[in-house]
Design a protein around this nucleic acid. Structure first.
Lengths: 221, 221
DNA sequence: TAGATTGTTAATCGATTAACAATC
DNA sequence: TAGATTGTTAATCGATTAACAATC
């Protein structure tokens, strides 16, 4: 609160989320201290980057010992807002939408899915964990009543913008867009995009660039 | 083939995947030409970035008209390797793994899931689209026989590295890691990581930085 | 103390943007 | 032709890495 708080670069934020999960795992194993070079190794970074990143936090390491995991976890949780509950809805009850609605990692980290919506009547009423799939008409009411912060867009590309518009009009402040198209949102709504198909294409490009393996592992003759 | 081909920067590759999906949609709507500023607008970029990116391609635009969508789609497909079939297996038949195994966007783009594996006996035999969940012991044989290129890791964090090791030993050349931990792989295996929980945390951080809305949309009294 | 590790500054590296001549 | 848009160069911007004094 006493610290300048807004808008760390997204490159830094992306890594902070990884430090957090790493530190949580260290804590489960009762590791009390971690050095920048250890975090770096575990995550494929340089120790310099780690130290640079952690200076953005209201938290200091100790010479010779590194960073106390308990304190680091606490401050990362606070900066990332992972210490508060975030209420989400999922739009689209296809394979991806259904998987996210019941994804165990979400409640574990303070993300609560309070509703799932789909335009397809066949899907309405379907039970997903603790929620039922509802029709799109119910979306605005649920978003308001349940004070939903974030909408997850898991619909086909052609329906993504109208799902976004509906969520924005209902009052969400963030959108996670999983559809293949870019969605437009006003400045007061944050948008993050994540596309599994694009990610796989990035991977296969990298594979292609590796070239054919000199020797397939375990090749006999 | 006649062009230097390897290792465009990953920032460029990430955008090329988006140009490809965008151009495919334009083609469905029978749009024959697209200008850099139009692509930029549709994707939230600058026209300068778009033109810069497209110079990496073995393809030229035309003054006054822009880029021919048919040619652009063809060359993007070729560069990204999206014109060949990629064979994949999914390790982990939890919610996420099952969703990916039957994800419709994959076959549509040349990605074929030829196997799903899980250590849990209860899940073995479960039917997912055209494949059945198999035990981990069958993984090496399937990867070899089916000439699998890429393994998708959709297991809990503590099992991620051993899943990676198994896939690598069996001969995959790429890993898509969806688990929360970093996995280590030798240089001849490409790794891409994608973590839905981290992505949501990036989003909620951005929401937090927006601050409280001055006026909640549609606030009455 | 001696030595390891932080915090921080400066140097490097890469990515994005601006600008404009060439071109159709 | 006139004007719009590319391809490309140079300028800016930001992110990563290297290096080292401060410190416990």
């Amino acid at each position: 609160m006493t610290k300048k708080n807004s808008a760390l670069p997204s490159s830094v934020i992306r890594r902070l989320t990884r430090y957090l999960t790493e530190v949580q795992m260290l804590r489960e194993r009762d590791v009390e201290w971690v050095a920048s070079h250890e975090l770096a190794e575990g995550l494929g970074l340089t120790s310099s980057t780690v130290r640079q990143d952690l200076t953005h936090l209201d938290f200091s390491g100790t010479s010779k010992r590194g960073y106390e995991t308990a304190g680091l976890e606490r401050v990362l949780n606070r900066v990332l807002g992972a210490d508060t509950e975030w209420r989400m809805v999922v739009v689209g009850a296809g394979n991806l939408g259904r998987a996210l609605a019941v994804h165990e990692d979400f409640p574990r980290r303070g993300f609560k899915v309070v509703g799932v919506f789909d335009a397809d009547k066949q899907k309405i009423g379907m039970r997903l964990g603790s929620v039922k799939v509802r029709g799109m008409r119910e979306l605005p009411g649920v978003v308001r009543r349940e004070r939903v912060d974030v909408g997850i867009i898991a619909v086909p590309a052609h329906a993504a913008q109208s799902a976004a518009d509906l969520l924005i009009a209902a009052g969400v402040r963030g959108l996670l867009n999983l559809a293949l198209t870019h969605v437009i949102a006003p400045r007061h709504v944050a948008v993050t995009e994540s596309r599994i198909v694009s990610t796989v294409m990035e991977l296969t490009y990298a594979v292609k660039c590796l070239g054919e393996p000199a020797l397939p592992p375990g090749a006999g003759a």
